[in-house]
Every structure is written in structure tokens, then in C-alpha cells.
């Protein structure tokens, strides 16, 4: 058995996730706590954007997580379809709501940032638009995974959809970029140039690390619940047959 087979066995997962969970949880709380403290108190306001730049400390990490979670879902879908690991399918399912929540946060905080900076709540800017499409992809995945009476079939169909969506994300990004330059030539402030002040970069990276640990912790929570639910279903079937 290779290492991932061992990692993916539900019994083993239940034992190692029990001690990974508190570590991830405390790391998330620590990183987000320190990152917030640095971001809200210690970091300077931007000379152009003033205090609104602090929205960046939730917006940018949330947008990163939105993409990261979808990539993780594509990877675990591939793992499920190729190596038939049932835990990989559950992992895709457990990650989807987390990614959808981060995408929603990125959209709402982006809109709250856009209002003072651009003067409107929403612009059909390339990034916002691709994030919106990504949000729809998350919704589609979750709807399809829950639509079947048989959870195995829902899992397989939704895994295929996650891979199709993953192929589509760069195409959407490219076409939306192209469309955007066509309609409003470069009026949007570039937010993440390489020339970012270290006083801003440190809290930004801390928040990103905190969000990642948070995602790991919540995915483990949901995965543990799903493994137990499958076990409960098996037990109930056993009880019904014994009766």
C-alpha cells in the first residue's frame, strides 16, 4: 500500500485527524489573531486608498482561498476518479462549502472595497467577474452532489463536474480579462503589485496562513462528520436487517 492509500483509509483518517484538528484550529486562531492585530493596528494606511486598504487583509486571502479550495477539490476529484478513494470524494464534498464561503467573502469584501475606491458597489472588473463565475461553479457542484438519492452516484457525477469546472476556470479568467480590456481599458487600481510594503505583507501572509489552517480545520470537522454518517448508515442498515 502506498502512503496515500494509508492516509485515505477512513479508519486511519479518524485517528490522525483527531490530533491534526486541534493543531490546525489553534494555528488558525493564532495566525488570524496576530494577523488582525498587525493589520488593524500596526500596519500603515495606504497613501492612495487610506484606511480602506485594511479590507485587503480579509479580501485578498479570501480570494486566494477561493481558488485554492477549488484546486484542492479538483485534485481530490481526480484522486477519487482515478484511484477510487472514497475518502477523496468525501473530501471534495467537505471542501465545497468552505470554498463557497471564502468566495462569498471575497465578493462581499471586494464590493465593500469597491464602493469607496471606484464609487460603485460593483464593477464588471475581470477579477470580480471571474470570482462570481467561480461562485456559481461552487453552487453547481454542491447542487449536483446533493441531487442524487444515491450518494455514491452524486459523488461521482459531482467529481466529474469539479474537473470540468477546473479546466474551465482559466478559460473564463482569460476570456473575462480580454473582455474587460475591451470595455474599460485599465481603469482599475492594481492591488497586488510586487512593491507591497513589508508592514502590509506580513499581516497579509499571516491572514492567508490563518485562513488556510481554518479551512483545514473545518474540512476535517466536516469529513469526520461524513465518515461517521456513513458508519451510522451502515449500522442502521445492519440493525434493520437484524430485526
Amino acid at each position: 500500500m502506498s502512503w496515500w492509500h494509508r492516509l485515505a483509509s477512513p479508519t486511519r483518517f479518524m485517528s490522525y485527524s483527531a490530533w491534526v484538528l486541534p493543531i490546525a484550529g489553534w494555528l488558525a486562531a493564532g495566525c488570524i489573531g496576530v494577523g488582525l492585530a498587525l493589520g488593524l493596528f500596526a500596519s500603515p494606511a495606504d497613501y492612495q486608498q487610506g484606511e480602506t486598504v485594511r479590507i485587503m487583509y480579509v479580501h485578498v486571502p479570501a480570494a486566494w482561498m477561493a481558488l485554492f479550495c477549488y484546486s484542492a477539490m479538483a485534485a481530490s476529484s481526480a484522486g477519487y476518479l482515478i484511484w477510487k478513494q472514497p475518502l477523496a470524494e468525501l473530501a471534495t464534498r467537505a471542501t465545497a462549502p468552505v470554498g463557497a464561503c471564502f468566495t462569498a467573502i471575497a465578493l462581499v469584501s471586494g464590493s465593500l472595497w469597491g464602493q469607496p475606491m471606484w464609487g460603485t458597489w460593483w464593477v464588471w472588473d475581470a477579477r470580480l467577474t471571474s470570482a462570481l463565475v467561480l461562485f456559481f461553479l461552487y453552487l453547481g457542484y454542491m447542487a449536483l452532489a446533493e441531487a442524487f438519492d444515491d450518494p455514491t452516484r452524486g459523488g461521482k457525477a459531482a467529481s466529474i463536474l469539479a474537473l470540468v469546472g477546473f479546466v474551465n476556470v482559466p478559460i473564463v479568467k482569460f476570456s473575462v480579462d480580454w473582455w474587460n480590456t475591451l470595455h474599460q481599458p485599465a481603469s482599475v487600481v492594481k492591488l497586488d503589485g510586487p512593491a507591497i510594503d513589508p508592514a502590509m505583507l506580513v499581516p497579509l501572509l499571516l491572514m492567508a496562513a490563518g485562513f488556510t489552517f481554518y479551512a483545514v480545520a473545518v474540512v476535517i470537522l466536516r469529513l469526520r462528520a461524513m465518515v461517521l454518517e456513513r458508519k451510522i448508515q451502515a449500522l442502521q442498515r445492519q440493525l434493520a436487517e437484524a430485526r
Binding site: 487610506g50 480602506t52 479590507i55 467573502i105
Partner: peptide, 16 residues
């Protein structure tokens, strides 16, 4: 007051 931008900064953190 967030330099007059409180109405945008705090909701962003609050929603998160």
C-alpha cells in the same frame, strides 16, 4: 472611524 471609511472597513471584517 477608520479615516472616515468605517462604513466599509468594519462591515467587510464583520461579514468575514
Amino acid at each position: 472611524a477608520m479615516g472616515g471609511y468605517a462604513a466599509y472597513v468594519w462591515p467587510a471584517f464583520g461579514v468575514t
